[in-house]
Design a protein around this nucleic acid. Structure first.
Lengths: 192, 192
DNA sequence: TGTAAATCTGAACAAGCGCTCAGCGATGAC
DNA sequence: GTCATCGCTGAGCGCTTGTTCAGATTTACA
């Protein structure tokens, strides 16, 4: 259920509608209109509106997790790894490829089972970043009094970009990713 | 319109309902129930649901702005001022006194005129932080390649705390404020 | 004690919601 | 040529939404 071209169109329509209007603010009629079909047609691809939100959320979380793993493998030393992670993670959210935060606020809307799955993926994302930070502490490249809180700060900082980024703004996604990469190293006490 | 004790109760009920369920997710009946009155009674205090959101937003933005001004006056050197600002700003959001972000996402819901007022307040908040950063650059206490983006990063970092802070978590608001204060100085290139 | 204002209620309005269903037209298999 | 399958539609279901209104109750002051 939900990987034909038409289903893909519904998914994209829902991402933009949810991002713009919020879950409750985006009606199924609005989503259907953006996908260029009747409201009833949406239900041939998705069981319910909640199922649609879950589909988006699962999709984007899996993509982000994969990107994180790829980025972490991109360097050797912890600072290199962290640079790569922060750059890619920020880029992802600046490009709005995520729709990740859609479910971030609205995780409470999901079914208990669906919420469990998303939370598990989010824990894995956290784990990737955490492990690099701890490696850096051991090699004394990083210095922080509370690795866990710094980890939270780093990730939420990046994810938040999706909220304020404007395509017509003065910064490109790459500008932001570059700057945030530098900020991350500073936050971890790397003195260059 | 809206400063009697009963109106205050409605305001608090709406803050919690909006924060928990989102603007569209929180019905006027739900808000009325939380305030301990009938749905119709809400409309003696507020013209509309949008007016209620605006009331909350205006209130919290004015409080945050005042706190920022107070904090900025708390130190002499730019690092001192910035420490104080970041601590207070973060504390405010961790304590959830804001309901600020409620309107942060949902500013699109507001009337054009109401949105203008909120945006103006937000610009003023930004200006307070910006001026301290620029003072620090002149005194060479701070070093950053893009003061404007660093300013955005600092503010969004703090504001985001309201999204993930849990009362039953391992960190107190003061813990977070203290850590974020240190992070802010690092992000601004202060070497201690 | 009487009166005006402030505050609240129950009932109801039109409109919009998520979702279902019988049926339509095109496509491809036999 | 027939028939099943698929993606889709228009109509409409039961329900909830924001909001209004006539009237009841409470409060404040003379």
């Amino acid at each position: 259920m939900g990987d034909s071209p038409a289903a893909e169109r519904v998914l994209r329509a829902a991402v933009s509608a949810f991002a713009e209007l919020g879950f409750h603010g985006a009606s199924t009629r609005e989503i259907a209109a953006r996908a260029g079909m009747s409201p009833a047609a949406v239900y041939t691809h998705f069981r319910s509106k909640e199922d649609l939100l879950f589909g988006i959320s699962l999709d984007s979380h899996e993509q982000v997790l994969a990107a994180l793993h790829r980025a972490a493998a991109q360097g050797v030393t912890p600072p290199e790894r962290m640079s790569s992670i922060m750059y890619e993670f920020t880029l992802f959210h600046a490009r709005g490829r995520a729709g990740a935060w859609v479910a971030n606020n609205e995780i409470a809307i999901l079914t208990a089972e669906h919420a469990r799955q998303i939370k598990a993926l989010r824990r894995q994302m956290m784990e990737v970043v955490r492990s690099v930070i701890e490696a850096g502490l051991r090699t004394q490249d990083f210095h922080t009094s509370d690795p866990s809180m710094t980890c939270t700060a780093l990730m939420t900082l990046s994810m938040n970009v999706e909220r304020w980024y404007r395509e017509d703004g003065r910064w490109s996604p790459e500008d932001i990713a570059t700057h945030y990469r530098d900020l991350a190293l500073r936050m971890l006490g790397v003195t260059s």
